[in-house]
């Protein structure tokens, strides 16, 4: 069920400002692809173009093509809501719905889409929470509010919520940047499990994390502040971290940047 993403000639804008310029890459199914690069280089913007969340931002606009297997996400008859059901997303800060219980948070995607059978719901919630390695910690308090969990648990709750709608692709925007090392480890382990079922793209500032969890790594950079971000190179993670083909990548990875 995981799908391949094929991006070609993609540029994204905020109003008239070009945030990323002419990016082309392929994201392999059932693998983890990491995006690294300095702040402001457009990694997150690029990630958000992959499920059409970019256009939710006022002034957000995209040019180019994103093929999910053989469908263009930016085709004229494509419904962004349907795209987001296929390509799920986990955000930097854990954001469970404050008015909902743990159970309702996980069930939210299905319930709000109206695409579920009542008797299946319990099973889906349990499966998703188990998939996010959270089931054992919360199974006795499913009706308690999700905002009462710790930060790491909340982030796993958000992952459970995202995988409950059975997406093909899971996008993660710095999912561990607000978490302590133990919670981070839990989520990294989880990413390892999830890649059996999903295509995963993760943005991270932590290069050790990129090296640990990803199969392929893409390095983004921008020439100067105010200039659009560009894809410098994408390759096997091992190669990027041992023997990158571009000098800028090596400088960034070894900390000799700027």
């Amino acid at each position: 069920m995981a799908k391949r993403i094929d991006v070609s000639g993609l540029s994204a804008f905020y109003g008239s400002h070009r945030a990323i310029d002419d990016i082309s890459m392929t994201v392999e199914p059932r693998s983890v692809t990491a995006f690294i690069g300095p702040s402001g280089c457009g990694k997150s913007t690029f990630l958000r173009t992959l499920n059409r969340m970019h256009e939710v931002t006022p002034g957000g606009r995209v040019e180019g093509k994103v093929m999910l297997d053989d469908e263009n996400l930016y085709g004229s008859s494509v419904d962004p809501v349907a795209v987001r059901r296929t390509v799920g997303m986990v955000f930097q800060r854990p954001n469970p719905f404050p008015t909902m219980s743990i159970y309702d948070n996980v069930a939210a995607g299905l319930r709000l889409n109206g695409s579920y059978k009542k008797r299946d719901l319990d099973g889906i919630v349990e499966k998703s929470l188990q998939g996010a390695n959270l089931w054992n910690e919360v199974k006795d308090r499913l009706n308690k509010p999700g905002s009462g969990l710790s930060g790491g648990q909340q982030q796993r709750l958000c992952i459970a919520r995202a995988i409950a709608v059975e997406p093909q692709v899971l996008l993660m925007d710095e999912p561990c940047s607000a978490l302590d090392p133990i919670s981070t480890l839990a989520i990294e382990d989880l990413i390892g499990d999830l890649k059996e079922r999903f295509t995963i793209v993760i943005v991270t500032h932590n290069m050790q994390q990129a090296a640990r969890v990803s199969d392929r790594t893409a390095f983004f950079n921008l020439e100067a502040v105010g200039k659009p971000g560009k894809l410098i190179e994408i390759d096997e993670t091992e190669r990027i971290f041992s023997n990158p083909s571009v000098q800028a990548t090596e400088d960034y990875i070894s900390g000799r940047f700027g």
Binding site: M53, R84, G88, T99, L112, N113
Partner: peptide, 27 residues
């Protein structure tokens, strides 16, 4: 209402009107 909640809901593939009705207004 934090924008993150709207984005979380939209990213689950919930249409905008249901996001407003079921997430924004209850909050």
């Amino acid at each position: 209402v934090p924008n993150e909640l709207r984005e979380a809901s939209l990213a689950l593939g919930v249409p905008k009107w249901r996001t407003i009705l079921k997430v924004v207004l209850p909050t």
